[in-house]
């Protein structure tokens, strides 16, 4: 298979009940996968397992490297895991405060990952930061402002720029539009839609917003009680849901 990241039998339980169990999942380049499910369904646990922020109790995680080799991430050294997370992967957090450095400028936030990978030329770093501010529709005249001087929606776009600057192959997003005003949400969704179709990277988004999933995702996974209960092409799962829970979930969405 051509999957970039594959999980097999991934299990992590807390207190023997919450968590996720026996998850098989494949993330492909150029494909946006959304995990939907209610609070406590295990979707965040799964996200954390896949993004190496949690170790599984059982199961394996395989990654296809640039040269086509398949590596078992459970056996990879901590150095290798950290290098992956810093260069080839990105992680956009629900709350931009958790994903940004609060005491350095917008520009420094964007170039931090480049510097961590050895880039040192100040002028080039600044140019790259300005270029990315433009791409995420932020006023590049504000490159020296601190994150707290930006609105919530702008901070979220800053966080996205900060993650994409190293040209990652895989991007994880945890509820990227939660807590934003609808007009700000629309702008962010538009940006994400454009970037995902241009970049051809694999993206995993955890969301409880079916509208976000319908707009962005190619493939949908529905989680409940720690298991994937339904999966398929996004519009098929939403228009012809098979499981009782998925039918309930879809019929609970307010029509516009």
């Amino acid at each position: 298979m051509t999957a970039l990241l594959s999980g097999r039998g991934l299990t992590r339980m807390f207190d023997g009940k919450n968590g996720c169990a026996q998850i098989d999942i494949d993330l492909h380049p150029g494909e946006v996968t959304c995990i939907v499910g209610e609070s406590g369904s295990g979707k965040t646990t799964l996200l954390n397992l896949l993004s190496l922020q949690l170790r599984p109790d059982a199961g394996s995680l395989y990654y296809r490297t640039d040269d086509g080799a398949r590596i078992d991430l459970g056996l990879a050294s901590e150095i290798d895991r950290r290098r992956l997370m810093r260069t080839e992967w990105g992680f956009v957090r629900q709350n931009p405060r958790d994903g940004l450095l609060r005491d350095v400028s917008a520009g420094a936030n964007i170039s931090e990952r480049l510097m961590a990978n050895g880039a040192r030329h100040y002028g080039a770093l600044r140019d790259t930061a300005i270029d990315w501010m433009r791409k995420v529709e932020l006023d590049h005249g504000r490159v020296d402002d601190l994150p707290r001087d930006f609105s919530g929606g702008m901070q979220q776009r800053l966080q996205i720029a900060r993650n994409l600057v190293t040209g990652p192959r895989l991007l994880f997003m945890d509820e990227p539009t939660a807590g934003l005003d609808v007009s700000v949400q629309a702008r962010l969704l538009d940006l994400l839609r454009t970037l995902t179709s241009q970049l051809g990277i694999a993206i995993l988004i955890v969301t409880h917003d079916i509208g976000v999933a319908r707009l962005l995702a190619h493939r949908l996974l529905v989680m409940r009680r720690g298991r994937i209960i339904e999966t398929g092409l996004t519009d098929q799962v939403l228009d012809d849901p098979q499981q009782p829970y998925t039918q309930m979930l879809v019929s609970s969405v307010l029509p516009v």
Binding site: G232, L233, D235, Q236, D239, D240, Q242
Partner: peptide
């Protein structure tokens, strides 16, 4: 039509 388009299973 929807079955042909893959929208319905």
């Amino acid at each position: 039509l929807r079955c042909i388009y893959g929208n319905y299973l």
